[in-house]
Design a protein around this nucleic acid. Structure first.
Lengths: 166, 166
DNA sequence: CCGGAATACGTGACATGTCACGTGAGTTGT
DNA sequence: ACAACTCACGTGACATGTCACGTATTCCGG
């Protein structure tokens, strides 16, 4: 029961509409969000994503690889980024005791405070830009559509599936 | 008739669901698409967006500022990017006759060929990852939701509204 | 016509992301 | 117990993006 496929190599009219809408929104929304975090709290959206992921993890601490798959990043990107965040005191990096190949990224007190300081403004912006434009009756089908597509991307994409490991 | 707003500084349960789904999808999808273009055609998604925007423009030629707002980029980002694409022969940069402050970016023959070579594979990937996961009955509400949000971002965001100027 | 404001860009310094590769730690077969 | 493999990660070179600023052109009021 998926959307019908037209000639290989092209999209039908309704699909073009959806894709254009998605692309345009994505470009501007990520720009605006990045901008607000940067201006108000000296955090990039990437920083914010890292802090958020850590804050909901057990002991606020995750192995580099685990965190990278959670975020959908490459490992080496996270490696660079974590080093820079550690230099700013937002996280700390320590070799794991159990397996000494593993490095664990953990949230510092300063990191938690930075997240808590930034969260309300960030959430408000999301509210203003995203949800204030979205009619209530479209919320559920919208979420459902996103989740279907996400599952499909996970199934067919090249990136490893995120795990719920400690 | 927009979604109701809970306590300032937080999202209600259904909104969290939508936002999480959106963020997760965005991260992985942009990664996968970038990766395919880069691997198969030596083009980044940014390159592709520039080429596409030019290809539908009158005379395949736009002023730097106009193109930047179309794409939702900052001008200086496009300035750097266009210089690099010009060095690869994909576009050309020429001062406009009418207003000598303006630089016009135009699609070269090589640029058009690169776009035509990359388009089918790109569209197929979009199809496989995006539309094959999307049930047909959700397509219309999904597009509608995206468009509402986009309009709202345009209205409240800091980025200038894209113009339909030549 | 002239001086100041506005506009359209480019640039340089720096932050960030990607890719290919190297290193050291665990794992496995014999 | 040791060689070969795999795994987790860091690094260095380079591509890309951002911000603050400088320059040239145009516009506009008097």
């Amino acid at each position: 029961m998926t959307a019908r496929r037209p000639a290989r190599g092209w999209l039908d009219h309704d699909q073009q509409r959806a894709w254009l809408a998605y692309i345009r929104l994505q470009l501007r929304l990520s720009y605006e969000i990045n901008r607000q975090l940067q201006a108000d709290h000296e955090l990039s959206l990437s920083d914010y994503d890292v802090l958020t992921a850590l804050s909901v993890a057990p002991a606020s601490c995750l192995a580099v690889s685990t965190l990278a798959t959670q975020l959908g990043w490459e490992r080496s990107r996270l490696s660079h980024h974590a080093r820079r965040m550690a230099a700013r005191g937002l996280v700390s990096l320590d070799p794991a005791l159990a397996d000494r190949r593993v490095t664990e990224v953990s949230l510092t007190t300063a990191g938690r405070h930075a997240l808590e300081a930034a969260a309300p403004g960030h959430v408000d912006l999301v509210h203003d830009l995203f949800f204030d434009g979205l009619p209530a009756h479209l919320l559920a089908p919208f979420s459902e559509a996103l989740e279907h597509i996400y599952d499909n991307v996970l199934a067919r994409g090249t990136l490893p599936r995120p795990e719920i490991r400690s």
